[in-house]
């Protein structure tokens, strides 16, 4: 700070607190709604202060599910989400590490062709090509499976691009030394490159876990079996059932549970999260 002007500092703090209040308000309302019972949630105006039904609602949604018995226990859907998010994050990181390694450290025909092919995937978000990949997954018999939920999403240009940048900063002497000591390519990859890119892998993992957990359209398209539903995609069905009989306390409890894991990840690994976000540049 250049000059000491208490008024401006005060304005800065006030603006930030106001900003936080606006940003946090929807979450507060969600939390409040999840702590009341069904009766209170139909009376206008809705409460702004928490009630005492939090654990009762938590128990109901987690084990029975929201939305009149035809939905799935949220606990099970959260388990599905966790598996899918982990498969996507680990899968993306693994195949990107391997292909970046090949592209940076090997000279082979079509090397640049492969690089551009991977790069092109970045340009095509899932939402753009909704039907054709659906048909491919259906033909491969991967509907309603963890494989179908994760494999189509694990190709990643951004991750490959990022690891490529990381590997390019590794000094050439490393490889020369490894060679003198008689290490083969995979030994070099495993014992030198992987440890060197540890922090990048962790940062990327945080971003990709959130990406995987928050997938919506893809699981919506390829799962029809309720035992494969993910928690994020279930919100929509609950909203639809809310048209007839609003069970906002359960819907909001489910929303709360659905956003909890990614928020915990962001807050507890904030440094890595920020690094991952700025490094991959999305």
């Amino acid at each position: 700070m250049i000059e000491n002007r208490p008024i401006i500092t005060f304005i800065a703090h006030a603006t930030l607190i106001l900003g936080i209040a606006i940003v946090a308000f929807p979450i507060w309302i969600t939390f409040v709604a999840s702590t009341h019972d069904a009766v209170r949630m139909t009376q206008v105006p809705l409460p702004l202060w928490p009630g005492d039904q939090f654990f009762a609602n938590l128990y109901t949604t987690f084990t029975v599910g929201a939305g009149g018995g035809n939905t799935v226990p949220v606990g099970m859907m959260m388990f599905n989400s966790l598996i899918v998010a982990l498969m996507i994050a680990v899968g993306k990181i693994t195949i990107s590490l391997l292909s970046a390694f090949a592209i940076v450290y090997f000279k082979f025909p079509f090397r640049m062709g492969f690089f551009w092919m991977i790069f092109l995937t970045l340009m095509l978000p899932v939402e753009v090509r909704i039907l054709p990949p659906f048909k491919v997954v259906a033909d491969l018999g991967m509907l309603n499976s963890y494989w179908g939920l994760s494999i189509p999403l694990i190709a990643s240009a951004t991750a490959t691009f990022m690891f490529r940048q990381v590997f390019l900063t590794v000094p050439d002497e490393m490889l020369e030394a490894a060679r003198v000591d008689g290490a083969g390519p995979m030994r070099f990859f495993w014992d030198i490159l992987l440890p060197l890119s540890r922090t990048n892998i962790a940062a990327l993992f945080v971003i990709l876990f959130i990406y995987g957990w928050n997938q919506y359209l893809w699981p919506l398209l390829i799962t029809t079996d309720s035992s494969m539903f993910t928690v994020v995609m279930s919100i929509k069905q609950m909203l639809e059932s809310a048209e007839q009989a609003p069970e906002w306390h359960l819907i909001m409890m489910t929303s709360l549970l659905a956003m909890l894991p990614p928020i915990v990840v962001v807050l507890s690994m904030q440094k890595m999260f920020v690094q991952g976000l700025t490094e991959t540049d999305k």
């Binding site: 940003v23 929807p26 979450i27 309302i29 969600t30 959130i210 957990w213 928050n214 919506y216 994020v232 995609m233 919100i235 929509k236 609950m238 909203l239 819907i251 929303s255 659905a258 956003m259 990614p262 928020i263 990840v265 962001v266 807050l267 904030q270 999260f273 920020v274 976000l277």
Partner: peptide
Amino acid sequence: IWPYAVAPVIAGAL
């Protein structure tokens, strides 16, 4: 920063 972690569909629900 944490609204970043909220899935779009959940943001919609809120």
